[in-house]
Design a protein around this nucleic acid. Structure first.
Length: 837
RNA sequence: GCCCGGGUGGCGGAAUUGGCAGACGCACAGGACUUAAAAUCCUGUGAGGGUUUCCCUCGUGAGGGUUCGAGUCCCUCCCCGGGCACCA
């Protein structure tokens, strides 16, 4: 049997549209014909369409349905346009909910996960999404996660994976560490519970080594929404400034390094502030005069906790350390303070305070009665501020010999040069981005392939011993690092000395899994390397990636980082993996997010049972622009279902006439009536609109255009005395093609009922003919003083002169220009005449 | 505070480059079919008004501007959503 031609049940048209039977039939046909399976084929242009892989939480929700339906319409459209389309799916299968389920229901996380995947896969099949299921991946399988471990080892070798002891974000609810990206306003991104600080030893990926590239390469991403790029720029948070050393007065050998973006204000620096965690502060607490107060303050700050401390409302507090530093520009002696608003992890953990030109410094100086000295005047030389607020803009320097009179910008350059020449400072760049902490004190994740040996220390597991298998468990206990309780896992021998050793018991952040899964879709079998070179070469870059904007600074930055690491490992030959990105809007119900706790969740299963997958697919794409929020509406869904039924009725009504029609040749323009030509025109306008709309993710207007076309068919059939069967056949066949990206089951059935043998999947997308789409008579609008007063019809190609003459002769128009002098006549060719009186 | 979006009928939303505002769908109303209802088909549906097959006035968050002409461009402001934020 030829592929693409097997029909299990030939179409026998019923009066009513039996979506359940039809959808089932075509899902089976597609599976048997293996239609969506693809191979690399250098003779055909490829298109890699990717959607963010789902977490197998138990069931698909409407958000998934929207995401994957939008993607599927593009995949099917591109296939029909002749592209070799890679469209796969997988499961982000590691993660905490599986462990929570294990704790609650006493089922092994693996079984819970695999069961969920099975359920959700069935749901995917029922939606009719065109995936190549051979390429499916599950990140919890050793075939997959061994490569996470392999990447870890490569990164360890390169110094990109390292162990760090430090303050971490700890989520009590999850009993694990979170990366900075995973903390939102002090709350855990997953369960919104409060994140606390904890001192722990953690494995980190040195993403900061790539901060400049991650920033620069955003400019390559022309197909990404500006919003996402600006979010990433914000997150990376580059600021260019200078590092300057302020020597200590009583210990000139040492100096306090500060970072500033406003070197031009340094003549106004009246004190220096250190972060409470600054390395020198500890040594100063035994100072007889200030030590006690210092210690008390350090304790206070420590108790405040990071997120209280970094909240803007928090009062700025500090204490004097008793020390003085020397401003290297003025040689002036200024006091050294510590304060809660200076953070150790940004810049150098120390600042110069310029109260006259910085709001925080100003407030602080007022509170503790410190000097405020203006050194910047606004450009227009208006008298500088009267000291009730800081002047933070750029301006002209004053009181800054020898730099006085320079603009802020000029001064910054000259002052850096000066510092460099004198050896007390240099240009410096700070980033907000922190390294990615990937250790998770959880069970259901990729084991980190490291071993601790008493003799040899921290030793990597040799590559040939991968994967380090995650041991099977029956259930999980809360409140401990689960792997540490499994002796068979924990105890091992040292790869170097064969002596007694124990394994690392933390697992990897699941964002590691999703950082490179889309490479594995191009070859999920290869077991000698994470990726196969030729496959990556053929399929990459991803042409279009569709997902939610909530991953803008999580997954979407990690994945870019991973690609750069892979490039430097020689695995891939490009900087950026994803050419086009589309972020779809959320699905709401009654204006709020769907959630179990609100009880406003719509189940895709229920909808599919009641209306069919095609109606659901249509609704989620029709009801709102793809990038905006979509408010669920039962009535809107009904409307889409009605449209399919209406189309079906027309097909049924015409089925007899159509089979009599001479389908060999399409009827010529000359043989058609005026109404017939109008219908064909509408058809071609629709083809043009759909082609255009699908390229630009305008599924909503594309579907509206098909609805309009159907309305035109109804109009034609009702009004024409002798409707042309061959024209109707032409229109309906084309309509099946146009509909197939959105409602593929319906379209296939329609196509078959019109006598077609081949499946629609690879049927060529209809050709747009601008000649046929052009209006026969064009309507010219007549305006008087910019207001529409009349219209007349004319033949295309009418000259400007003719238009003007006709407009001025128009009876209705005359009434408006009567007795008034004509000042000007504007003629827009083929469109409008505006008479100004 | 800074940076992105957005504000159009009763509702979701349309509107190449500045050129007929409100496509399409929902909801509503009327009609046809029916014993009746549902379903379906047809018609109407921004607001106000008039001499009511037709016509006028107003109308895209507010105010101003550019233009023959502005939902669209410019300025000022208001509101809603999102991101970043004691980041030096």
């Amino acid at each position: 049997m030829e592929p693409g031609t097997c029909n299990l049940e030939p179409s026998t048209m019923n009066e009513s549209y039996d979506y359940a039977a039809i959808e089932k039939k075509w899902q089976r046909n597609w599976a048997q014909a293996r239609e969506f399976e693809v191979q690399e084929d250098s003779n055909r242009p490829k298109y890699y369409l990717l959607e963010m892989l789902p977490y197998p939480s138990g069931a698909l929700h409407i958000g998934h349905v929207r995401n994957y339906s939008l993607g599927d319409s593009i995949a099917r459209f591109k296939r029909m346009q002749g592209f070799n389309v890679l469209h796969s799916i997988g499961w982000d299968a590691f993660g905490l909910p599986a462990e929570n389920a294990a704790i609650q229901h006493k089922i092994p996380p693996e079984r819970w996960t695999l069961d969920n995947i099975e359920t959700m896969k069935k749901q995917c099949l029922r939606m009719g999404w065109s995936y190549d299921w051979n390429r499916e991946i599950m990140t919890c399988l050793p075939e997959y996660y061994r490569w996470n471990q392999w990447f870890f080892l490569q990164m360890f070798k390169q110094g990109l994976a390292y162990r760090r002891k430090g303050t971490v974000n700890w989520c009590e609810q999850c009993q694990t560490v979170l990366a900075n990206e995973q903390v939102e306003n002090g709350l855990c991104w997953r369960d919104k519970s409060l994140v606390v600080e904890k001192e722990l030893e953690q494995w980190c990926f040195r993403i900061t080594q790539y901060n400049e590239q991650l920033l620069q390469d955003l400019d390559q991403l022309e197909g990404w929404p500006e919003k996402v790029k600006s979010m990433q720029r914000n997150w990376i948070g580059k600021s260019v400034g200078a590092r300057v050393t302020f020597p200590l007065e009583d210990d000139p050998g040492v100096g306090i390094d500060i970072f500033t973006t406003r070197l031009d204000t340094i003549y106004g620096a009246t004190f220096v502030v250190l972060a409470p965690e600054h390395e020198w502060v500890r040594g100063w607490t035994d100072d007889p005069e200030h030590g006690e107060e210092l210690s008390r303050f350090l304790e206070e700050v420590r108790q405040q906790g990071r997120d209280v401390r970094t909240a803007e409302e928090t009062e700025k507090k500090g204490v004097f350390t008793g020390r003085y530093a020397i401003n290297p520009y003025t040689q002036e002696r200024i006091p050294v303070w510590i304060a809660n608003f200076v953070l150790m992890e940004y810049g150098t953990g120390a600042i110069m305070a310029v109260p006259a030109h910085d709001e925080r410094d100003f407030a602080f100086a007022k509170k503790y009665d410190l000097d405020i000295r203006p050194v910047i005047q606004s450009e227009d030389r208006s008298p500088s501020s009267d000291l009730d607020q800081a002047f933070v803009d750029y301006g002209v320097l004053v009181n800054s010999e020898p730099f006085s009179g320079l603009s802020s910008q000029e001064a910054q350059k000259k002052m850096v040069q000066h510092a460099q020449a004198e050896g007390f400072g240099e240009e410096s760049v700070s980033y907000r981005l922190r390294d990615w902490s990937i250790s998770r004190q959880r069970y259901w994740g990729t084991p980190i392939p490291m071993v601790y040996c008493q003799k040899c220390g921290v030793v990597p597991v040799p590559e040939e011993d991968l994967p380090v298998l995650l041991p099977q468990v029956e259930s999980i206990q809360l409140g401990q690092s689960p792997l540490a309780t499994i002796p068979e896992f924990l105890n091992t021998s040292c790869p170097q000395c064969q002596g007694e050793a124990r394994r690392e018991t933390d697992t990897m952040d699941t964002f590691v899994d999703s950082s490179w899964y889309f490479y594995r879709y191009t070859d999920n079998q290869i077991d000698s390397s994470p990726v196969r070179d030729e496959a990556v070469r053929y399929w990459f870059p991803v042409d279009m990636y569709i997902g939610g904007v909530e991953h803008a600074i999580l997954h979407l930055i990690y994945m870019r980082f991973f690609t750069k690491v892979m490039r430097d490992l020689g695995l891939v030959g490009f900087d950026e993996p994803v050419k086009g990105l589309f972020t779809q809007g959320m699905v709401l119900k009654g204006g709020v997010k769907m959630s179990k706790s609100r009880g406003n969740v719509v189940s895709p299963d229920t909808v599919v049972e009641g209306y069919g997958a095609d109606a659901l697919r249509l609704f989620v794409q029709f009801a709102a622009p793809a990038d905006r929020e979509l408010d669920w509406s039962d009535q809107g869904l009904e409307g889409c279902s009605r449209f399919l039924n209406r189309l079906w009725r027309m097909l049924y009504r015409l089925r007899e006439e159509m089979s009599q029609g001479d389908s060999a040749d399409s009827i010529s323009q000359e043989e058609l009536s005026k109404r017939g030509r109008a219908l064909r025109r509408k058809l071609h306008q629709t083809i043009g609109k759909l082609t255009h709309d699908l390229e630009r993710f305008r599924q909503n207007t594309a579907i509206a255009a098909i609805m309009e076309l159907l309305n035109s068919v109804y109009e034609y059939v009702d009004q024409e005395d002798h409707p042309q069967p061959s024209l109707l056949e032409e229109v309906l066949k084309t309509m099946a093609l146009l509909l197939s990206p959105f409602a593929p089951h319906f379209a296939e059935e329609m196509w078959e009922s019109l006598g077609q043998k081949e499946h629609l999947t690879f049927a060529p997308w209809p050709q747009f003919d601008p000649e046929l789409a052009r209006e026969e008579g064009i309507k010219i609008v007549i305006q008087v003083n910019g207001k529409v007063r009349s219209r007349f019809s004319a033949l295309p190609g009418i000259s400007k002169e003719e238009m003007e003459t006709l407009a001025l002769e128009d009876e209705k128009t005359k009434a408006f220009i009567e007795g008034k002098p004509i000042r000007k006549v504007i003629v827009v060719p083929q469109k409008l005449v505006n008479i100004v009186v």
